[in-house]
């Protein structure tokens, strides 16, 4: 069984980090994982995207045409990638920055006002943590407690940032549960 999720947004939104945290958690659960960034001119301010593949067997192709899920952190990402998500997948829409919806009825939309919620917690920078925990809760792709530990470890060298990111993590779970 293989599942893929594409994280997409502006450069600077923490896209690569969200994807890495998810990949870490899956690896700790014993799964095969692959983290494939987009690299190139689009890194500088344009659309950044990154795919995480999680599987119970050796992963073949790093080239994924139709991911199972999508985390769209800005409007161009949603418009570009929502049409290629496999039916039944989760499409997370960062509603703080995206006023539209996917237009698809065969997927599960998860509406997360990630930026607004992050600003309320005190820093817009933790919007990516809200998104990743909400996505993980909704999709069931990784174990929530393992993911929480990965987030904690990620900030272990900057302990001041742990509390706000833990709050962000819980906020994401709350939003997913309410949806």
């Amino acid at each position: 069984m293989q599942k893929e999720v594409m994280f997409a947004g502006f450069g600077g939104q923490g896209i690569l980090l969200s994807a890495k945290l998810l990949a870490y958690a899956a690896m700790k659960q014993g799964a095969q994982v692959m983290w494939i960034p987009s690299y190139g001119p689009e890194m500088r301010g344009g659309t950044a995207y990154c795919t995480v593949v999680v599987s119970d067997r050796l992963i073949g192709s790093p080239i994924i045409k139709n991911p199972a899920h999508l985390v769209a952190m800005n409007r161009p990402s949603l418009e570009k990638f929502a049409p290629v998500v496999k039916p039944g997948g989760v499409v997370l829409i960062n509603s703080s920055l995206i006023p539209v919806r996917s237009g698809r009825t065969d997927i599960q939309e998860l509406i997360v006002p990630a930026n607004d919620a992050a600003i309320q917690l005190g820093s817009v920078k933790c919007a990516n943590i809200i998104a990743v925990s909400a996505f993980a809760a909704k999709s069931g792709m990784v174990d929530i407690e393992i993911l929480r530990k990965c987030v904690q470890e990620e900030f272990s060298s900057k302990p001041k940032l742990i509390p706000i990111n833990m709050q962000a993590f819980d906020e994401g779970l709350k939003i997913a549960a309410a949806s």
Partner: peptide
Amino acid sequence: DGLIGQMMEP
């Protein structure tokens, strides 16, 4: 190739 350099795997 560029992909092997850029991607992460365990």
